[in-house]
Design a protein around this nucleic acid. Structure first.
Length: 299
DNA sequence: TGCCAGGGTCTTT
DNA sequence: AAAGACCATGGC
């Protein structure tokens, strides 16, 4: 595994490697990647090919330096480039967001403190939906524990320099499971049903990222998701935000978002849905980025 | 140690 | 449409 390919990916001016790496590092017990000494490392599943291993580091004005081990050919390298570009959300022009946020009482401080942070996404659709379902109604620390058990029980892995790196379980694997196989991980009965149900819909082809991208409007995409058992308004908007990159995705019921507002306004109670809607009016079409930045206050 | 956690479904009014 | 019961486990 000594031979590797190397690419540089240009980044926009509104980009901070440090801020994005810090976001990844703060995700405590994360099992899908490793951050160490300025390097972000992970395995990456390429459909129809063997998985690759990548190492991302800061190349300053040259953008991101990505080293790739195990790429079959140039097509594979292009797929990796596409994945990283998507993961770091490098193609969104943040200037309008920053212009709006400068005038906003909640976002002012956030864009100052986290300038250059991108909405680090979850490009893989099944991973995004699964992570949303796993995280429902439990604290984040436990959610990471559950995801780790899920991945290390049903995912595959590759080894690189003596360390093991995991690939998220495929929907085919999860679709073939029974609830009894997930409950021992401390998933609730319901969560187990939701995960298996979603996996089956994806395997059947009746729930796909492509169908959501092809939806006529944001509301249509949201409806396609909430029609699925186990996906309510919060999970739908979470997936639209982290995977589909809908700028106006807005997980209204999100406890983290509500607590961030409570913290910034020094409130005794979390704001109501109506209060949140009122104060978020200026965020129109940037709700997704607003939410992502406000989450950063909670770490 | 009791409250709360990156909610959702199902039933009842 | 809106509200309440229930789920159901660990973190702090």
């Amino acid at each position: 595994m000594e031979q590797y390919d190397e690419i540089q990916i240009p980044v926009p001016a509104e980009f901070s490697f440090h801020q994005n790496m810090k976001y990844l590092m703060d995700a405590g017990n994360e099992c899908m990647y490793e951050v160490e000494d300025g390097h972000i490392r992970r395995a990456l599943s390429i459909p129809g090919e063997a998985p690759v291993f990548i190492d991302i580091s800061d190349a300053g004005t040259d953008g991101l330096l990505v080293k790739i081990w195990g790429a079959a050919d140039d097509t594979t390298i292009q797929k990796v480039q596409h994945y990283v570009t998507d993961w770091f959300d490098l193609e969104t022009d943040l200037r309008p967001f920053y212009a709006m946020a400068q005038e906003d009482r909640y976002l002012q401080k956030a864009i100052e403190q986290f300038y250059g942070l991108r909405n680090m996404g979850i490009p893989d659709f099944f991973e995004a939906v699964s992570w949303g379902i796993i995280g429902q109604q439990i604290n984040l620390a436990f959610a990471f524990t559950l995801k780790r058990r899920f991945v290390e029980t049903f995912g595959s892995s590759i080894e690189w320099q003596g360390k093991r790196y995991w690939l998220f379980p495929t929907p085919e694997t999860i679709a073939a499971l029974s609830v009894e196989e997930l409950v021992p991980l401390q998933m609730t009965q319901r969560k187990s049903e939701y995960l298996i149900g979603v996996a089956r819909l994806i395997v059947e082809g009746s729930l796909t990222k492509e169908a959501l991208q092809a939806a006529g409007s944001f509301k249509d995409a949201e409806k396609l998701l909430t029609a699925v058992r186990g996906i309510g308004p919060w999970t739908a908007n979470y997936v639209l935000m982290r995977c589909l990159r809908s700028p106006n995705a807005f997980p209204l019921a999100d406890v983290g978002l509500l607590n961030a507002i409570k913290y910034l306004d020094n409130l005794d109670e979390k704001p109501s849905r109506e209060e949140l809607l009122r104060l978020a009016v200026p965020w129109a079409d940037w709700e997704s980025y607003a939410t992502f930045y406000l989450w950063r206050f909670l770490y």
